Simulated scan of single mutants.
Amino acid sequence: MNIAEKDISAEQGQEDRAQSIRDALRDAIVDRRLTPGAKLSEAEVGSLFDVSRTVVRSVLQTLAYEGLVKIERNRGAFVSNPTPEDARQIFDSRRLIEPGIVRSAAARLTPIDIAALRLHLQQEAQFMNRRGPAARRGEIKASGDFHLMLAAHAGNAILEKFMDELVARSSLVIALYGRSGVSSCGHNEHGAVLDALEAGNADHACHLMLHHIDHIEADLDLRVQEGLTLKDALAL
């Protein structure tokens, strides 16, 4: 391997490491193991993952761009603390975007795709039969993943990326403000949307999706819980 190849390999390794750190922090934030307002010290994150502050800073900037972290000048980075108005705007955005995703997906879904989505709903249902914070976090994630799977089938990479951000922000809002988390009603609504898509009724699927988003938003309140330290949240 020549010098240029070594440099490319090292750069790729650093990018992969940054991505894994980003994923770990993102999951901890969305799962609400790191609560809104929690400080993300560059030194502590760097020590926990054994990387430089430069890598940590890049990761935190990426999370800030996604809306999950807020960087304050001379104070550092903190987990975003979405307000009720933030939550309203997030769900307003979803109401504007997801009907289009549903219509695009309806034109592209194959029987194999439908089967994969039904398998996912079976896995989602397993979390409903469990109790405890871990099961609740799993249910919230599985619910978001259903929407992301539909976005992936819509065939629009830009919309898919935007939905990834919206679902992440929604998951944080649900974990923070949700009275009951993602309920069995929400799971049943996923099934109804999929039934309509399988039947080729895109209009009805869109109507059901809008009802579903309304239902999720209606389950929100303003309660806040205390969370874990950075080290404990990442289980390192």
Results as ranks from 00 to 15, higher is better:
E165T: 13
F146A: 12
S170R: 14
I213C: 07
R179D: 13
A151R: 02
R179H: 10
H211T: 03
H153P: 05
S180A: 13
G144D: 07
H147C: 02
A175M: 08
R169M: 04
G191C: 13
I158M: 10
L166E: 03
H212M: 08
G144R: 15
A199V: 08
C185Y: 05
L172Y: 07
K161H: 07
D195S: 10
G191R: 09
S184Y: 09
S170Q: 14
E198Q: 09
F146I: 12
L210F: 10
A202G: 06
S184I: 05
L176V: 02
V167C: 00
G181H: 02
V167S: 01
D164H: 12
G186Y: 01
G155D: 09
H187W: 15
N188W: 03
K161Q: 11
R169P: 00
L172I: 12
L176H: 04
A202Q: 05
L148Q: 13
L150C: 09
S180Q: 11
E198T: 01
A196W: 09
H147Y: 14
D203A: 13
N156F: 01
I158W: 06
A168K: 11
N201Q: 06
D164Q: 12
H204K: 13
L210N: 15
E165M: 10
L208C: 13
L172N: 03
L172H: 05
A154T: 07
D164K: 12
H147L: 10
L148V: 07
G186V: 04
I174Q: 11
S143R: 04
G186H: 13
I158Y: 04
G186W: 01
H147K: 05
C206K: 06
E160S: 06
G191D: 12
G186F: 00
A175Y: 02
H212E: 07
S180N: 15
S183G: 11
H207M: 08
H207C: 04
A154S: 15
I213K: 00
I158D: 04
Y177T: 05
C185P: 01
L210R: 14
G178A: 09
F162C: 04
Y177K: 08
V173N: 02
